[in-house]
Structures are given as structure tokens and as C-alpha cells.
């Protein structure tokens, strides 16, 4: 097991290398010039050239790439072209809101969606099942910003239960933190409830037809035991997969939700950087997102081994 994890971490190195190369080339090959954006509309060609020189944009591509990689390896993600601050500081500042939102959303979604999916499968074909399916179709099909504005209009403007927008770090007090993170969480959670409930229901339906479920019932076990211990445990692999990918998706950017609720998260940092052609920031954010995907995939694979004894990696 430990050997396997070590092997997987080693394998992630070339993956990250390829991602780095890809990100670098993709940005260099898209039209648009950061120097022009920095210099503004009235800059002379000489000024532009000076800015390009100072950013290293006039060096050959290969030199630019290796300079960048060399600095990365020393933990230097460069300096934002737009704000002049170190990229690492920008990202650090934006991490907390995004990770907070991801954790609250996934936790809430799992707590609601898994039981819903289990019950829907157990009561397959009944009103409860149809209600869960309807909920999941709604969750999939209503755009996030519509839900967001509806939430704001109802819970903030009408009922005045929650503030309209903003973010408070958890260090400033759990109450304040929860008050501000609640609405964005509710907004995002609907989509994830839909996703997780659906996958839970589908896998449970399949598993409930399996022979060992009949065996469990033949043993005279109560339904709760049959469902939770025998059925749900066997569905855990697809459910964990969806949860993991969902988590990674939120971390790597929920731009719309962050914009609607004015959360200073990674998603908005990315969009701002893209619009400004802020190469160092874009590169760092994409690399970070890839790293998160690689780590989460590794965690998912480790979870597989723990959850299903038939899966063995060598």
C-alpha cells in the first residue's frame, strides 16, 4: 500500500511536467499581449518594448519556459504582471474562501444527497423516488446564478436572515463565517445534491438487485442494516468518485457563485488574470488546479482500496 502510494506520487511528477509545458505553450500561443494591457492605450512602441523586456517576454520561448520552471521549483511562482504582487501571496489570499466553500458545500451535499439517494432507490417507483428525481433534474437544470439571486432575494432582502454577500475567515468567529458562507453553500449544494443523489440512487438500484442483498434479507436482518451495511458499502466506490471530482471542481473555480456572492476566491482570481493576460497568475492557478486533481485522484484510488477488498494495486 505505501509502495503503491509512493509509486503514484512519483507518477504524478511527469504529469505535472506535461501540464506545466501545456499551460506555458497554450498561453504563449493565444493572441494578446500583456505589455499592451499594462501600458494602456496611449503607450508608444518604445514603451511597449521596454515593458516586454522587463517582463522577459522578448527572450526565446525555451528560455522563458526553463526560467519559469526553475523558479517554480524554488517555490517562486513569479510576480503578477497586473498587481505587481508575488503570485503566491495572491493565491494564498484567495485559497481560504474557495476551500471553505468547497468543504461546506460537499459536506452539506453528502449529508443530504446520500440518504436521499438511498431512500429513492429503496422506495423505487414511489412518490418519494419521483420527488428525488425531480429535485435532481431541477438541480441540474437551473443555472447557478439564478439560484444565487433567488436565494439573495428571498433570504437576504425579504427575510433578512443572511448578509447579501462577502466573506469572513473562520478565524473571525464561526458564527460570522457561517452567516456569510451559508447562501453560497446553499446555492452550490443544489447541483451537488442532484449529482450525488442521482449516482447514489443508480448504484443502489443496481446493488439492491444483487444476490447478497437477498442473502442479507434471508438472514433476517432489519432493512436499515441491509441498506447501510450491505448495499451502501458496495456503492461507495462510484459515490466517492463523484464526491472527489465534485470537490476538485469547486476548488478549481466556481466563478459564477463567487461573483454573485462577491467571494474573493480562486475562481475570480483566475478570471481576472485571464482577462488581463496575467501569465504568471494564470499559470500558477492552472498548475495548482492540476495538482489538486492529481492529489484528489490519488485519494480516491486509496479510498477504493480501503472500501473494496477486491481492488488491489501492485
Amino acid at each position: 500500500m505505501i509502495g503503491y502510494i509512493f509509486q503514484r506520487i512519483l507518477a504524478a511528477v511527469p504529469v505535472m511536467g506535461f501540464v506545466a509545458l501545456f499551460v506555458f505553450l497554450l498561453l504563449r500561443l493565444t493572441p494578446g499581449d500583456p505589455a499592451a494591457i499594462i501600458a494602456g492605450d496611449t503607450a508608444t512602441p518604445a514603451q511597449l518594448e521596454a515593458i516586454r523586456d522587463s517582463l522577459g517576454l522578448n527572450d526565446p520561448m525555451l528560455v522563458q519556459f526553463f526560467t519559469w520552471i526553475g523558479r517554480l521549483l524554488q517555490g517562486d511562482f513569479g510576480t503578477s504582471i497586473l498587481s505587481g504582487k508575488p503570485v503566491i501571496e495572491l493565491i494564498e489570499a484567495r485559497m481560504e474562501p474557495t476551500i471553505s466553500l468547497a468543504l461546506t458545500t460537499i459536506t452539506l451535499s453528502v449529508v443530504i444527497a446520500v440518504p436521499l439517494g438511498v431512500i429513492a432507490a429503496w422506495k423505487h417507483g414511489t412518490l418519494i423516488d419521483r420527488f428525488v428525481m425531480l429535485l435532481s433534474v431541477l438541480g441540474f437544470s437551473i443555472p447557478v446564478f439564478v439560484i444565487g439571486y433567488l436565494m439573495i432575494s428571498l433570504f437576504s432582502m425579504e427575510l433578512k436572515w443572511f448578509p447579501v454577500q462577502g466573506f469572513r475567515p473562520i478565524g473571525d468567529g464561526v458564527g460570522d463565517f457561517l452567516e456569510r458562507i451559508a447562501l453560497p453553500t446553499f446555492t452550490l449544494t443544489l447541483l451537488y445534491i442532484a449529482l450525488i443523489a442521482r449516482i447514489t440512487r443508480t448504484s443502489m438500484l443496481e446493488i439492491l438487485g444483487d444476490d447478497y442483498i437477498r442473502t442479507a434479507r434471508a438472514k433476517g436482518l432489519p432493512e436499515s442494516r441491509v441498506l447501510m451495511r450491505h448495499a451502501l458499502r458496495n456503492c461507495s466506490v462510484p459515490i466517492i468518485t463523484v464526491i472527489g471530482i465534485g470537490f476538485a471542481l469547486i476548488i478549481s473555480g466556481v466563478v459564477v457563485t463567487e461573483s454573485v456572492f462577491n467571494l474573493p476566491g480562486l475562481g475570480r482570481l483566475t478570471v481576472d488574470a485571464v482577462l488581463a493576460r496575467d501569465y504568471p497568475v494564470i499559470q500558477a492557478v492552472i498548475l495548482l488546479a492540476s495538482l489538486i486533481y492529481v492529489v484528489i485522484n490519488l485519494l480516491i484510488d486509496i479510498a477504493y482500496v480501503l472500501l473494496d477488498p477486491r481492488i488491489r494495486y501492485s
Binding site: D211, Y212, T215, A218, H230, R233, P309, R310
Partner: peptide, 25 residues
């Protein structure tokens, strides 16, 4: 009542021993 009777008064074994046991327990 049926749950109480199962395993104590009557039991059943099935054809496919490959699939009749929970693979993860």
C-alpha cells in the same frame, strides 16, 4: 415477524456462492 423467523426457524442457501456473499465484508 418474518425477519424473526428467518435464520431462526427457516433458512435459505442459494445457487451462486460467488455472488450470494457480500464482497466487501
Amino acid at each position: 415477524r418474518m425477519r424473526n423467523l428467518r435464520a431462526t426457524a427457516m433458512s435459505m442457501i442459494f445457487q451462486e456462492p460467488m455472488t450470494a456473499l457480500n464482497p466487501v465484508a
